[in-house]
Design a protein around this nucleic acid. Structure first.
Length: 426
DNA sequence: TCTGGGGTCCTAGGACCC
DNA sequence: TCTGGGGTCCTAGGACCC
């Protein structure tokens, strides 16, 4: 019998408790014990091991609110170590890219790819991907397969939750999908957040299947074309393709909470200069320039009893640039117009927006700066920082003391990216 | 005492024009 | 007394994701 046209399926690889898994690779004593990773500034819990999930500590919980449970369960606590996680992520993605022809890196711990063939071949392929990642990087993953990205996500959810799946699950046909969607709470569907879930549940649409069978017109009215795409994806009609080439960012943000309340203008200036430098570096990396810089400062909104102040300003530069000193100059100018003394500032941020690719840069003929020279200066600057670690090269206004810098009290080593912190075998 | 950071997309509604 | 309507552009804000 002639085989029908082969269907292309989407697969998604999702690293299990990614940050926790990264720590475990280099610290085997963390295996099988409860572990959490904290957000920047040691504020919230952003990654939990399976043991912690079972204790019932929810994702995103502020550390101070669950300190008692953490102690009682003897949970190990770590600050975020993004240098390590980014490097491990790259290893995982390189491994996948080695095994499949096309890959879309979706986030630090997720990637989509496409698979074709008969069901058995597909099952074997994803099993191979999973095992190779584990072997080459030490990171456990779950892989889901479906006719659309959304169904692949659903399958991944099953692979993670159901015992006996060995970390992989495929939703090949609609009938099988129906059975699974019937048991899936609607808020678990990719793209259905809190607000949409509330609205749906009010209409007695509580499962993914219910959503898949909803009336198109009503969905579009309520949730726009975005909602309609979710519904169609659940029905097995692809609305999203694999995006292999990452699009350059249109905005780049750098912001941080402070480890301690900041009062002095000088300290805020240091912070804003530092964040601007960081954002500018990211911008140069994707070869864009900007003419707009947006900055904001805010007090601690979680302390309603102390005096609150929030302000922001968007500054237009005389011309497009990627030159850090110029960007910092205007960022600080903006800061001076919004800074008010007498407040305890908790957070500040910088956003470079309306980025355009550098080759499309409009040269301002009346601009007296020498752009080529500036470009070369920044190239050397970035190269040194890349090779010798960040903060080797800095613009003077970034300051050296940084008394405001965020908390990071439980940090592990940069095992894979710093010779001084490489693991030692004894 | 202690609550993260970095993105995207979509639309309603105002401003403005003819 | 009668007081249009359609199109476009822009932006703020809402919703989502990891």
């Amino acid at each position: 019998m002639q085989s029908t046209k082969q269907i292309k399926y989407f697969a998604i690889v999702d690293c299990n408790s990614f940050y926790v898994s990264c720590e475990r690779v280099f610290n085997p004593s963390l295996k099988n014990v409860p572990v959490v990773i904290l957000s920047n500034n040691d504020g919230c819990i952003v990654s939990r091991s399976q043991e912690v999930k079972e204790i019932g500590i929810p994702a995103g919980m502020p550390l101070f609110k669950c300190e008692r449970d953490i102690k009682a369960s003897n949970t190990k606590v770590f600050s975020s170590n993004y240098t390590l996680y980014a490097d491990m992520s790259k290893r995982v993605m390189d491994t996948i890219a080695h095994l499949v022809p096309e890959i879309e890196v979706y986030s630090i711990d997720e990637a989509f790819f496409q698979v074709m063939g008969d069901h058995q071949e597909i099952k074997e392929k994803i099993k191979q991907v999973r095992e190779t990642i584990l072997q080459w990087t030490g990171i456990p993953t779950s892989i889901g397969v479906g006719k659309t990205k959304t169904l692949a996500k659903v399958a991944n959810h099953i692979a993670k939750k159901e015992k006996g799946t060995n970390g992989t699950y495929c939703l090949f046909d609609n009938k099988q999908a129906e059975l699974v969607l019937r048991d899936l709470p609607v808020q678990e569907v990719w793209g259905v957040g809190r607000r949409i879930a509330e609205k749906l549940i009010r209409r007695r649409i509580t499962t993914a299947l219910g959503l898949a069978k909803s009336n198109d017109r009503w969905i579009k009215e309520q949730f726009t074309v975005v909602g309609l795409k979710i519904v169609n994806e659940l029905r097995g009609i692809p609305c999203y393709d694999l995006e292999q080439v990452p699009q350059p960012r249109k905005n780049i943000v750098s912001s941080r909470s402070f480890g301690y309340p900041v009062i002095e203008q000088k300290d805020l200036e240091e912070a804003i200069a530092t964040y601007t430098a960081r954002a500018a570096e990211k911008m140069r990396k994707q070869e864009s320039v900007t003419q707009y810089i947006y900055i904001y400062i805010t007090t601690n909104r979680f302390q309603p009893n102390s005096k609150q102040y929030y302000n922001s300003i968007s500054v237009k530069l005389p011309s497009q640039t990627d030159y850090s000193p110029t960007l910092i100059h205007y960022a600080l100018k903006g800061l001076r117009t919004i800074y008010k003394p007498g407040f305890q500032y908790k957070k500040a941020g910088v956003m470079l927006s309306f980025l355009v690719p550098k080759p499309e840069m409009q040269i301002n003929l009346f601009d007296s700066y020498d752009t080529e020279k500036q470009t070369n200066v920044m190239k050397v600057f970035d190269r040194l920082n890349n090779r010798y670690g960040h903060n080797i090269m800095k613009v003077a206004s970034e300051g050296l003391k940084k008394g405001w810098i965020m908390k990071s009290d439980y940090k592990s080593n940069k095992y894979t990216t710093d010779w001084n912190e490489i693991p030692v075998v004894s």
